[in-house]
Computed example of a mutant assay.
Amino acid sequence: MAADDEPLIDDDAGRLVRPYTVSNGRTAPTRKLDLMSLVASTGRVGQSDLTPEYARTLRLCKGPTSVAEVAAHLRLPAAVTKVLLSDLVDAGAVAAQAPRPAADPSDSRLLEILLDGLQRRL
Rank of each mutant, 00 (worst) to 15 (best):
L74H: 00
L8V: 05
S106H: 14
K62T: 07
V94H: 03
A93P: 04
L115F: 08
G14T: 04
A2E: 14
L84D: 01
S108M: 15
V80S: 00
R100M: 15
D107H: 02
V17T: 12
L74R: 00
K82Y: 10
G117R: 01
C61P: 03
K82Q: 09
A79D: 11
R26D: 07
G25E: 04
L122I: 05
S48Y: 11
A98L: 13
R121K: 13
S66Y: 09
A55N: 01
T57V: 02
T42F: 02
K32C: 10
A68P: 01
D10P: 02
L85T: 02
D12M: 10
G25L: 04
L85Q: 01
V67H: 06
T27M: 13
R75D: 11
G25D: 09
A71V: 05
A98N: 03
Y54T: 08
A102I: 11
P99W: 12
D34Q: 07
L35I: 13
A102G: 12
D107C: 04
V67Y: 01
P105N: 00
A91N: 02
H73D: 05
D12K: 15
P105Q: 00
R121S: 14
G92P: 00
K32A: 14
A55F: 05
A68G: 10
A79G: 06
D10Q: 03
D11Y: 15
L58I: 04
E6H: 13
Q119M: 15
L16P: 03
A28P: 07
N24P: 02
G43L: 04
V67K: 02
L118D: 08
G117Q: 03
A93W: 04
P19N: 08
R75N: 09
Q97K: 15
R120I: 13
S23I: 01
L74Y: 00
L88W: 03
G92N: 06
D116L: 12
A98E: 01
T51F: 05
L76I: 00
L85H: 00
L111I: 07
V83S: 01
A3S: 07
G117Y: 02
R15M: 05
P101A: 09
Y54K: 11
L76F: 05
P77L: 04
D49Q: 13
L58R: 03
D10R: 09
